[in-house]
Amino acid sequence: MTETITGDRRFPPALAEVATAEFPYEDGDGFDFEPYDTFDSAEETTEWIRQWTGNHELDGAAYRVFGQDGTGGLAALWCVRPGLPLTEQPVVFLGSEGEVGVVAPNLSDFLWVLADGYGPMEAAIYPDREVRPRPELAELAARHATTPRRPARTITAEAKAEFPAFEEDLSALCR
């Protein structure tokens, strides 16, 4: 079993600023993303992962849920890199209908994904959709990012290559 960061629930400043940004849906041409201003509690996350997988032996320690889409799919930091801070953990999407995907290898790259006009669901499930740059989110990313700007498609492809078994491993937890 992978060691996780169990105690850190401090909301990173970059996510706090993301929570204040606007994510217009624009009849499906914009974002389907509703960021939170805090992480879900450990108890809420445990309840969610148990319901999502049907596996009541799991706890939610590996995830820090920070937003959702309109269907209830969740965006989370996946605490899979032992010893690294939350900002260095990958961003993942877990859809309400079982869709899953790695969105970005870290929070900094996730900010650049948002700047290209992709929400977590779009990046994980529809990475080839048309790029719709958001200058206001690019400015937010420039203030907080520690990685250079790259196209969202490149970031998502790199994340999926780094964690190729994410979907399969998560599927194995389902009962």
Results as ranks from 00 to 15, higher is better:
Asp59His: 07
Ile49Tyr: 07
Val80Arg: 13
Ala172Thr: 08
Ala42Gly: 10
Gly73Leu: 06
Leu84Glu: 15
Val131Lys: 13
Gly101Pro: 01
Asp69Val: 04
Glu57Gly: 15
Glu26Gln: 15
Tyr126Phe: 12
Val103Trp: 01
Val65Trp: 01
Gly72Arg: 10
Phe66Trp: 15
Tyr118Asn: 02
Pro151Ile: 02
Glu168Met: 09
Arg81Trp: 04
Asn106Ala: 12
Tyr36Trp: 08
Thr38Gly: 07
Pro35Thr: 06
Phe39Val: 09
Ala115Gln: 08
Arg10Gln: 11
Tyr25Arg: 11
Phe66Tyr: 15
Ser96Lys: 04
Pro105Ile: 03
Phe110Asp: 00
Pro127Leu: 07
Ala141Lys: 01
Arg81Asn: 14
Phe163Ala: 05
Val65Gln: 05
Leu114Phe: 02
Ile125Tyr: 04
Thr71Arg: 13
Met1Pro: 09
Ala75Asn: 13
Pro120Gly: 09
Leu107Cys: 08
Ser171Leu: 13
Pro13Val: 02
Gly60Asn: 09
Glu162Pro: 04
Arg153Met: 11
Thr154Ile: 11
Phe110Asn: 02
Leu74Phe: 06
Arg134Ala: 12
Thr87Gln: 12
Leu15Trp: 01
Pro133Ile: 03
Asp109Phe: 00
Glu139Arg: 14
Asp109Glu: 14
His144Gly: 07
Gly83Gln: 10
Gly73Gln: 07
Ala159Gln: 10
Gly54Cys: 06
Val18Met: 09
